[in-house]
């Protein structure tokens, strides 16, 4: 499965993921404390400039993320034009776009492996509560590996449906689909056990 990291290399690709994430958290919180429309406009301009500096392909991909919130932008715009409170409406919209753009920037400039390293560091304290770090890493790998396989099987089920019906498949296809996931879980568990599970073998 392909991650959302941008193939366009930027300097940010090399920065430590942990720092980028911490910075993102601070920046997002900060955005919610700023009420001034002009300041928000300035911030968004800076963010747009950062996207543009990475080239047209990077910029276009970033722009496509706006589809996640265009409905909300429309609702807020209509709402605030209706109530006459344009300034607050503008602030909300600019803040939404900036928050989304910053978060997306981190995703586009951070490799999957770097993200998983951060997860490893952040979940290390949970080992005391019983979380097995090897199990978590295996679980992540399993989902990445098995999602396309399961989707393919689901596709076969929808094809089998369409072979006997002119209509699109209904929710009933979820019964055999869930059974397939349960069967796959059995096979995977078997394979894991055959390879020694999660307890590393002791050296003699």
């Amino acid at each position: 499965m392909i991650s959302l990291t941008s193939p366009v290399k930027t300097r940010a690709h090399g920065w430590p993921a942990g720092l980028k994430l911490a910075g993102l958290c601070a920046a997002t919180v900060g955005l919610f404390f700023i009420q001034n429309l002009a300041v928000h406009a300035g911030i968004l301009c800076v963010i747009v400039a950062i996207y543009a500096s990475a080239g047209p392909l990077f910029f276009k991909t970033g722009l496509r993320q706006l589809r996640l919130i265009w409905v909300f932008i429309a609702i807020v715009a209509i709402w605030h034009i209706w109530t006459g409170d344009i300034i607050t409406g503008g602030t909300v919209i600019l803040r939404l776009v900036s928050a989304l753009a910053l978060a997306n920037l981190v995703t586009m400039t951070t490799r999957l492996t770097d993200m998983i390293d951060v997860v490893r560091v952040l979940t290390a304290p949970l080992a005391r509560l019983g979380l097995n770090p090897a199990a978590l890493e295996m679980a992540i790998a399993l989902v990445i590996r098995l999602t396309p396989v399961l989707a393919q099987k689901g596709g076969n089920l929808t094809q089998a449906w369409r072979a006997r019906s002119p209509r699109k498949p209904t929710w009933q296809i979820l019964l055999p689909f869930t059974v397939l996931a349960l069967d796959d879980a059995d096979h995977v568990a078997e394979a894991l056990r055959a390879r020694g599970g999660f307890t590393p073998m002791k050296e003699d």
Partner: peptide, 28 residues
């Protein structure tokens, strides 16, 4: 233990796969 990890992973994959297969309908 392995069974738990496998089930947790497969159901996460199931949620993901549900986003990849063609959209389902309610019958009407």
């Amino acid at each position: 233990m392995e069974k738990n990890v496998a089930l947790i992973a497969l159901f996460a994959a199931l949620i993901a796969a549900l986003g990849l297969i063609p959209k389902l309908t309610l019958g009407f």
